[in-house]
Simulated assay, not measured.
Amino acid sequence: MKGFAVGIVLAVVGLALWLTTKEVETPIFSLSKAGLILAIVGGAEALFALLGLGKKANK
C-alpha cells in the first residue's frame, strides 16, 4: 500500500509541475518536462503497486 501512495503523490506533484510551469525555464532543464516525467514515473509506480497487491491477494 505504501508504494501505491507514493506513486499517487508523485503523479499529483508531477502533474502540478507540468501544468503550472510551462513558462518557467531553468538553465539545466525545464520544470514542465521534469513534472511530466514525475507524473509518468508516479503512475507507473502506482500501477505496479496495484499489480503487486493483486498477486498477493491471489495466493
Rank of each mutant, 00 (worst) to 15 (best):
L19S: 10
S32K: 07
I28F: 14
K2V: 12
T21L: 09
L31Y: 09
W18F: 11
A44I: 13
L19P: 00
I37D: 01
V6L: 15
G43Y: 05
V13D: 05
L53K: 09
L17C: 05
K2R: 12
G7M: 08
P27D: 10
A39G: 02
T26K: 02
S30C: 00
L47Y: 15
L10R: 00
L50A: 15
I37H: 07
E25L: 04
G14T: 08
T21N: 13
E23N: 05
L51Q: 07
F48W: 13
T26E: 09
K59R: 15
I8P: 00
L47T: 10
E23M: 02
V41W: 07
I37Q: 03
I8S: 05
G7K: 05
K22I: 02
G52E: 08
K2S: 12
A34V: 14
L53Y: 12
N58C: 06
L19T: 10
T21Q: 10
V24T: 13
G3K: 06
L15N: 07
L19G: 07
I40E: 00
V24W: 11
M1V: 13
N58I: 13
A34L: 15
G14S: 09
T21A: 01
G43H: 03
A39Y: 01
K56D: 07
P27T: 06
L53I: 10
K2E: 12
K22E: 13
I8V: 15
L31Q: 07
K2W: 14
A11W: 03
L53P: 01
A39R: 02
L36M: 12
N58G: 09
A46T: 03
A16V: 14
